Simulated assay, not measured.
Amino acid sequence: MGTIVERKSKSGTKHRAQVIKKKEGEVVFSKSATFSRKTAANAWIKKVEKDFDAGKLTNRQIQTTVSELIDKVIDTQRKQMGKTKSQVLKTIKLFDVADFEVASLRPADLVEFANQVAEGEHGPAGRSPSTTANYMSHLSGCLNLARPAFAIPFDRRVVEEARETTSTLGITGKSKKRTRRPIPEELDALMDFFVRRESRDTRAIPMSKIVPFAIFSARRQDEITRILWDDYSQEHATILVRNMKDPGEKEGNDVVCELPPEAIRIIESMPRLTDQIFPFHKDVVGRQFTGTCRFLGIRNLRFHDLRHEAASWLVETGRTLPQAMSVTGHKIWSSLQRYSHLKKVGNRYENWAWMEVIT
């Protein structure tokens, strides 16, 4: 007998139909699909059962579910999987689509999955189109490996049609480029807070140095906490950034980046107590920054915005895009293309009073 399970969401009620056939207690056939109307689900069940009884689906082997496919991809993966991708794949297994057979997936099933992601099931409500697109991308990557890697029958056109549909409907989309930069008053407030706290507590993390170093070096918070003294060359004004974030490579992407004089000055002011220049955990640095912004009433400013500030500053002080890339570590011009419209406006950090205080 076929079964129908109703699920209500913001996009309406969905009906998941499933037909399971057993022989001597073992499942010999299983197929499922989701429909907007219950009548359509019932009609589908009748057709599948009729085809099975007529022998058209006899001896059909049990198909791999989406959840099982994800496990296969993870187990077979030889490259180190990024933290975000690993978490997304783990979360996908909580959605209805995880129990669907890969071979029976239709574009409508993937569109429904995208709707569930966007509506915030199994996570924060109201996921953005870019976040939803990220979920679709990781699921699509697994599905596209089904046939060539595991001999699981799957038509890649299902993925193509579903992604085109979700994009047309606005369920998925590209992320908007952030343009948030800290204004001088905000930086002054942050620096004053950090300097005062560090003067009272010598054990406090030197955020008064980490924040400006992030601006002058264009380094991400996890990169800052990984830099070793051995990776730094005052003579050549460079640092070796190990495993720099890159869409194509999750490890082994070591890049030598130029250091502006301001960044070198901050490094030289740090005591050599450990192998790391900034021997602190990246999450602690992030929490310190976010918590202080919240305490000071500074809204919508993220630590990563300091990297955006760095790229803007590099261009504004007269560097060409290739020269700016030698500091930021970007490999392609398009990553910095949005800064090309900036005109040289001088160095907003020239004679910055806080440099004398922290160094």
Rank of each mutant, 00 (worst) to 15 (best):
S199Y: 00
S199I: 06
R200C: 07
D201R: 14
D201P: 03
T202W: 00
T202D: 08
T202C: 02
R203V: 01
A204G: 09
I205H: 04
I205R: 13
S208C: 14
S208K: 07
K209N: 10
K209L: 13
K209V: 08
I210Y: 10
I210L: 14
V211S: 11
V211E: 07
V211F: 09
P212K: 12
P212I: 14
P212N: 13
A214N: 10
A214W: 05
A214S: 11
A214I: 15
I215A: 06
I215S: 04
F216R: 00
F216L: 01
A218D: 07
R219V: 14
R219L: 15
Q221V: 15
Q221Y: 12
D222P: 00
D222W: 05
D222T: 15
E223C: 07
E223P: 01
E223G: 01
E223Q: 06
E223F: 02
T225R: 03
I227H: 02
I227R: 00
I227K: 00
L228R: 02
D230A: 15
D230K: 11
D231I: 07
Y232T: 06
Y232N: 04
Q234D: 14
H236R: 11
H236Q: 13
A237F: 01
A237C: 01
A237K: 03
T238W: 03
T238R: 11
I239G: 08
I239K: 08
V241H: 04
V241G: 03
M244H: 02
K245P: 10
K245D: 00
G248Y: 02
E249N: 05
E249S: 15
K250H: 13
K250L: 08
K250A: 12
G252H: 09
G252F: 06
G252Y: 10
N253C: 04
N253H: 06
V255K: 13
V255Y: 09
V256D: 04
C257V: 14
C257Q: 01
C257E: 08
E258H: 14
P260H: 03
P260C: 01
P260S: 04
P261K: 09
P261M: 01
E262M: 13
E262D: 15
E262K: 12
E262L: 13
A263F: 04
A263H: 03
I264W: 00
I266P: 03
I266D: 04
I266S: 06
E268I: 06
E268V: 06
E268P: 02
E268K: 12
S269W: 05
M270A: 12
M270K: 10
M270E: 14
R272F: 02
R272C: 09
R272T: 15
T274W: 02
D275C: 05
Q276Y: 12
Q276G: 05
Q276I: 07
Q276F: 07
Q276V: 10
I277D: 06
